[in-house]
Design a protein around this nucleic acid. Structure first.
Lengths: 222, 222
DNA sequence: TAGATTGTTAATCGATTAACAATC
DNA sequence: TAGATTGTTAATCGATTAACAATC
């Protein structure tokens, strides 16, 4: 309750939100190792953020710790899961059934949490009707109708650049709540629709930068 | 020249570096549309960063613009490409030949710039010897030897969590300069080795957060 | 109770934005 | 030259870190 009240009053910066899944991963590891409690200091040593930042981050959502004790691993894990909305199920569709779309279709299977791919869509007649990881591939022409019928939360865009915006427009019109975009471009979404980009080429390009910076620095040392 | 001098004196924040591939994408689009010049203001309208930030960002690397004129699209594109190191070729290997590894193998084919996947590695005997997008899959046991023989720049980690750190250790020992990590965990790399993570599940989890935040907000409006 | 560690306020640091002189 | 727009300095804003009183 406290969490929801706090969340409604002020927006939490995206820097904080990006750290939450990471906290959750480490807490999950601790849980697996049967660790019951952890202090912000111990967590700091594991995860690399300062203890101060960890306490600040968590206190955006409520006081989950206890003075003199620290945090209970399991309950903090559950709290963070709830903050992220991972105590719910999400129905997803994938548009674009190329290698990446197929990889996502297979990958999400392993997301133990409730992310369920309910359908895939493609324009390629050879793929329509095929099942990938037991998910049926439908004709892209059916997308509007499918979205009208079913209640889909997340649309995953695995098309090329040229088609991506049209796909997103259809998804927005069809009542989708969030877009997970793998197309290498920036998309325009309706107000109130969440958008998360996975720009693989951008990621690789910044890796290239750091590779070069590092080799320049080692030259300097010589 | 100026660029290299500046780059050596002070480290540029990762916030700036993350924006560079995005600038480059937009400049590329402009180039395709035969736009010759652009002002920081016009670029701001396209890309969404403030004109001031754009000028600040670029001036970390040198004065690429001209007062009263703006920036030459093509030359700015080339400058940013050079800063990122995209005027060079990178030899890459992929370890882990599951769906994601295969998607990356196929995907990189389209990275017109010089990212070349020279080999893939897996432990699965059924996959060893197979060719994916004309790239041979080798036995994982051959990895050390392969790295000793060839000069590989980037190691792409597409294994599961359990194997990822071992793979990275081998890559570091084998003289790789950068790691592109798709395993859902944080890896330890040797000093001077660049690491770029693509944490798909973290990305999806923060999308879930924003989906929920948005639906709470629309409830409030009612 | 004494010790530990949180939650929170205050201080610092860094990144973004604004302003404007320099200059094409 | 006049107008436009950069490069750069200064101001502001936000995020991180430090400090410590509160409290388990």
């Amino acid at each position: 309750m406290r969490r929801i009240l706090k969340g409604n009053t002020k927006t939490i910066s995206s820097a904080v939100i990006k750290r939450l899944p990471r906290y959750r991963r480490y807490l999950n590891e601790l849980k697996k190792k049967n660790v019951d409690r952890i202090s912000s200091n111990e967590l700091s040593n594991l995860i690399g953020y300062t203890a101060s930042q960890i306490r600040q981050d968590l206190n955006n959502f409520g006081g989950f710790g206890q003075q003199g004790y620290g945090y209970n691993v399991e309950s903090l894990y559950n709290e963070i899961s709830a903050i992220l909305g991972l105590d719910q199920e999400y129905r997803m569709i994938i548009v674009g059934t190329g290698n990446l779309g197929q990889a996502i279709a297979n990958y999400t299977y392993y997301f133990k949490s409730g992310f369920i791919v309910s359908a895939m869509f493609d324009v390629n007649p050879k793929l329509i009707g095929v099942r990938i990881n037991d998910i049926e591939v439908f004709d892209y022409d059916m997308l509007d109708e499918y979205l009208k019928d079913k209640d889909i939360d997340i649309g995953i865009v695995c098309t090329n650049k040229a088609s991506a915006q049209e796909v997103v427009d259809k998804m927005c019109a069809g009542g989708i709540k969030g877009i997970w975009n793998f197309a290498p471009m920036d998309l325009i979404v309706n107000e109130g629709i969440a958008l998360e980009n996975v720009h693989l080429s951008d990621s690789l390009h910044s890796l290239a930068y750091y590779i070069n910076r590092n080799s320049q620095q080692s030259q300097k040392k010589d």
